[in-house]
Amino acid sequence: MSASISFDKERNILKIGNQPVVLHCHHYNMFLQQSISDLIGDEKARTLQISAAHRVISRLYESIRVNYSDPEQILTLGSETFKKLGYGIIDFSKVSASGGKILLPMSHYAFNWFEKFGPAKKGVCLFAMGFALATMNKAFGTSFDSTDIRETQCRAMNPEEYEYCIIEVGKNGN
C-alpha cells in the first residue's frame, strides 16, 4: 500500500498525493543538509529540517485516501511510501500511541552521508525523523508539539558498530 507518483506533463511537475516531488541525488541531499547546518548551526538546522519534513508529510497524508481509523494502515502506508520514494526502510512495528522505537535498517541519509563525508558527529536522519513523527501523529491522533523525538543511533556515525538507525519517540517530558 503506497501512494502513486504522477507526472503532470503540462507543467512538468511530479506529484505524490497533492505534494510536488522532485528527483534529486544523494550528493545534493547531503550537500544541502550540511550547508543548512553550516549557515544556521546544528540545533536550528535540526529543528528546521524535522519540522519542514513533518509539514510536507502531514499534508501528504491529508491528501491521500486511507482508512484513518486504523493506525496500522497508516503506519504501513508510511513504510511503503518511505521505501517507494527512495529513503530506505523504516519499521514502525515497535511503536504504539505512547511512542516507541522506530528502526531504519536502511536510511538514504545515513548510508550516503557516511559514503560522502565519512563518520557523522550526530545523527543525520532528520528528514526521516519528521517523516516518522508525521506518520505517528496521523496514526495515533497525537500532535507534533506533544511528542519528543530523538535519533539515538545513526549508522552514519559508525556503520561498523551500528547496523540500524534508531529513532525514539515519546511524549514530551518523558
Partner: peptide, 30 residues
C-alpha cells in the same frame, strides 16, 4: 522507485523523490 533496500540506485547515484516544498523551505528559511 525504491528497490528491496528502499534505495533508488540509478545513474551512479542514489536518488530520492524529495518533497519540493521541503527543499525550498530549507533554502529560504535557512
Amino acid at each position: 522507485e525504491g528497490g528491496e533496500n528502499g534505495l533508488i540506485l540509478e545513474f551512479g547515484v542514489a536518488l530520492t523523490y524529495g518533497f519540493a516544498d521541503y527543499y525550498a523551505e530549507l533554502e529560504y528559511e535557512a
